[in-house]
């Protein structure tokens, strides 16, 4: 048998709203809803992002411009009937 963790008892403070239980926690370093996304910074998920990026066609296909900015057309298929599989 081992002894329980040496946690000190902390009484819930009065006037701080409802304390669910006397669970001992550390000092909060940030608030739980501290933003992880800053306003004004472009976000990968933002609408219009797909259209703004080069090489992404409106019908869901893509060209080599998606993968490279250096002479991308040289990486497109030589026959237009071929699928355009841009390099990873």
């Amino acid at each position: 048998m081992t002894k329980s963790n040496t946690a000190t008892k902390v009484k819930p403070k009065a006037g701080k709203g409802r304390a669910p239980a006397a669970i001992r926690t550390g000092r909060a370093m940030v608030s739980p809803d501290f933003t992880s996304h800053l306003q004004g910074v472009n976000e990968g998920n933002a609408t219009g992002h797909y259209e703004r990026q080069r090489g992404h066609l409106p019908d869901g296909r893509s060209t080599a411009a998606r993968s490279t900015g250096i002479n991308p057309s040289a990486h497109d298929p030589i026959d237009p009937r071929m699928p355009n599989l841009s390099p990873a």
């Binding site: 998920n45 992002h49 797909y50 992404h56 869901g60 296909r61 893509s62 599989l85």
Partner: peptide
């Protein structure tokens, strides 16, 4: 050639 895998939101 339908390689789209992501949707904006």
């Amino acid at each position: 050639g339908r390689t789209k895998v992501f949707t904006d939101f």
